[in-house]
Nucleic acid binder design. Structure first.
Lengths: 212, 212
DNA sequence: TGACAATATGACCACGTGGTCATATAATAT
DNA sequence: ATATTATATGACCACGTGGTCATATTGTCA
């Protein structure tokens, strides 16, 4: 955790440091990200940095936890609406919300993408500890629920489907990023919706010709 | 391209350098990978390195191209068998072959994984130039082919399905890596086959209960 | 005003980086 | 044996890294 001195800072200054750190850590992995750059960008001397943080890892973990907490907050505000929907609606909902999150907090989304690429085991471990694997658990819960309701076939492998959905989720983000530069769903709301529908239609109806 | 001097080297020495480079570039991204480490590991002086290569990028591109060429060679040796199979069989085939490639050339597979994580735009661009996007084209070709044969529904979005298959392919690899440490398909041949079947069954039959 | 603690600061450290270059050595041709 | 060319080598360079620390500045009590 950052030192007390950091939290005693004026809000403006503290936020400036935070946003400088977010920018740095979302553009380079842990090893390549530079404390010097963060200091320059937030206009604080090197010495001050080490008054505020124990070391590089301290800042990294702090920033990553912020992003994770924001994402959890965003989704838990939304997840209560899911209960009485079909699995298909739930999944569409999560996909679209995922894109909305990336639009609302592009830096946090970028941090997440960067974290997926992280090579440094120590940095990864420090961030994860526990808390991850949650999205997998969420998907599996939704799937089993849908099975009980008879909404999807009991023969469907929950883990396989969950993996499929997760990888799809990041694929959608990457697709948007590739096509529009940023994940700004606004540009092409219809386009995105159509794309998500195509994916969901494949998953729910299968690919096989109905005239088989 | 490496300098002539490099290709005049004795095979042993040249291969030692190559394998040292592969190891380094598969464990760290372009920026973090270290020439010094490569020199140490292959027991050549720094000065010699720069007799053999123009610079770091020169070596990086050379190594990555080797991996790509090996993968293309591996798949093109296999792809002729695909023609008279159904799409489902084709896809299973590619998935399994992908795992086999990762088993046969784990270092090359690791290089590929690392390349997916690459942040350095210049390094990425130098490797790609052209030549990528091939796997996407292959999938789309297979899909459209299957449509013509009436094998899959015409309404299925080829790009969406192609994207789904690609992301799934890397997801399967990652899943195996996660579960077994390395991608040694041998350990759990049945397990893997069952898992791939589950995924394909979802894609082809859809998820929806047949009693709807 | 003086004393004490909290904070701010940048020169400095040891080290690792990609890359250079003068020199030594080996190989080849005359 | 001599001259010429190709190769081998490691000290060296400028720079960037994460991190330290003595000192200067400020804030807060009495």
């Amino acid at each position: 955790m950052p030192k007390e001195t950091f939290f005693n800072l004026q809000n403006d200054k503290r936020n400036l440091i935070i946003s400088a750190a977010i920018e740095e850590f979302s553009k380079a992995n842990y090893n390549s990200a530079s404390i010097n750059q963060i200091c320059k960008r937030s206009d604080i001397p090197k010495g001050s940095f080490y008054q505020y943080f124990e070391d590089k890892l301290d800042l990294y973990v702090y920033i990553m936890k912020m992003a994770i907490e924001e994402k959890i907050r965003f989704f838990s505000a939304v997840i209560t609406e899911l209960h009485d929907q079909t699995l298909s609606e739930q999944i569409r909902f999560l996909f679209i919300k995922g894109l909305e999150f990336a639009k609302k907090y592009p830096q946090y989304a970028a941090l997440g993408e960067q974290f997926l690429k992280e090579n440094d085991e120590a940095a990864k471990a420090a961030v994860i500890q526990e808390g991850d694997r949650q999205s997998e658990a969420l998907f599996i819960h939704m799937i089993n629920n849908a099975k009980e309701k008879g909404e999807i076939d009991n023969k469907v492998d929950a883990l396989a489907l969950s993996l499929l959905l997760q990888s799809l989720n990041s694929a959608v983000n990457r697709y948007m990023l590739d096509k529009f530069g940023d994940i700004s769903y606004e540009h092409a709301k219809e386009d995105v919706n159509r794309f998500v529908d195509s994916l969901l239609s494949i998953i729910f109806n299968g690919v096989r010709s109905k005239f088989d």
